[in-house]
Computed example of a mutant assay.
Amino acid sequence: MLRAASFICLLLLLCALSVQAEQDTSPGPILVIGDSLSADYGFDRAQGWVNLLEARLDERGESRGVVNAAISGDTTRSGRARIAAALERHEPSLVIIQLGGNDGLRGLPVEETAANLRQMIAASQAAGARVLLVGVRMPPNYGRRFTEAFADMYRTVAADTGVVLVPRILEGVAERENLMQADGIHPTAEAQPLILDNLWPAIEGLLETN
């Protein structure tokens, strides 16, 4: 009787250890740190590209959880201030940094934006996560010199830190009035699948290497 009880206890212990080992090796979630372009501004959150990303992963049998930590109006400065807590809380395997647009719209120095992005990338890499950097273009009325410097900033940061870059989140979207809200800045709900398609090749590539 004692031997049977000991055997059952041993089996239970092995099962518990097996479950724990599986949990320890499973990939962490995807963490999105962004602004209104990722925070579903002007429409229901279920329609946003972040939620569509999670649904696509579920359909492919690659469920890992997607944490939408985007905040409308966020800048790289505030993103830098909150990323450490987000990394500690969620332990992501992939961090998507979609910030900088509000910096540009407010005319903040490009050098400051670049420095903040570098710090966010460094913190994510130190936490063991891969990073996807997502850029945005400034409207042409900001002047050619500034808009070109802003676009170059993303490319330089990505090259220097070794992260994957999607240069323009609204590629093929911002040019179409029917896909933009009345303010001319924010995409509509109908544009969200196109935004996900813009990001998907980079995301898929990074997930395959995790």
Rank of each mutant, 00 (worst) to 15 (best):
D160G: 02
E175W: 00
A126H: 11
Y154P: 10
V173E: 08
I83S: 10
N51S: 14
L12C: 14
V136F: 01
G135P: 11
E208S: 14
E59W: 05
G101V: 03
L57W: 09
I169M: 13
L14K: 03
T113S: 15
V50T: 06
S93E: 12
D44A: 13
R106Q: 06
I71N: 00
L31M: 12
G34N: 10
L31T: 09
G73C: 00
N178C: 03
A151T: 13
I71A: 03
A46Q: 13
M180H: 10
A21C: 07
N178L: 07
N141D: 05
P140C: 07
I30S: 05
G34I: 07
L37S: 13
R144P: 04
A85G: 06
Q98Y: 00
D24R: 13
D160Y: 10
A151M: 07
A4Q: 13
H90G: 03
G65Q: 08
A191H: 00
P187I: 01
N102W: 13
A151G: 09
L14S: 11
A126C: 08
F7Q: 05
L133E: 05
G135H: 09
G79N: 07
A182K: 08
A115R: 04
Q20Y: 01
E148V: 11
I169Y: 00
A149K: 11
E54L: 04
A46D: 12
R77W: 06
E59K: 15
R130T: 11
Q23A: 15
G162A: 07
E208A: 15
V95N: 10
L10C: 14
V157S: 08
L165F: 04
A127W: 00
P193Y: 08
L170H: 07
S78Q: 01
R60T: 06
L194N: 06
V50C: 04
V131W: 00
V136P: 02
E175Y: 01
I33M: 14
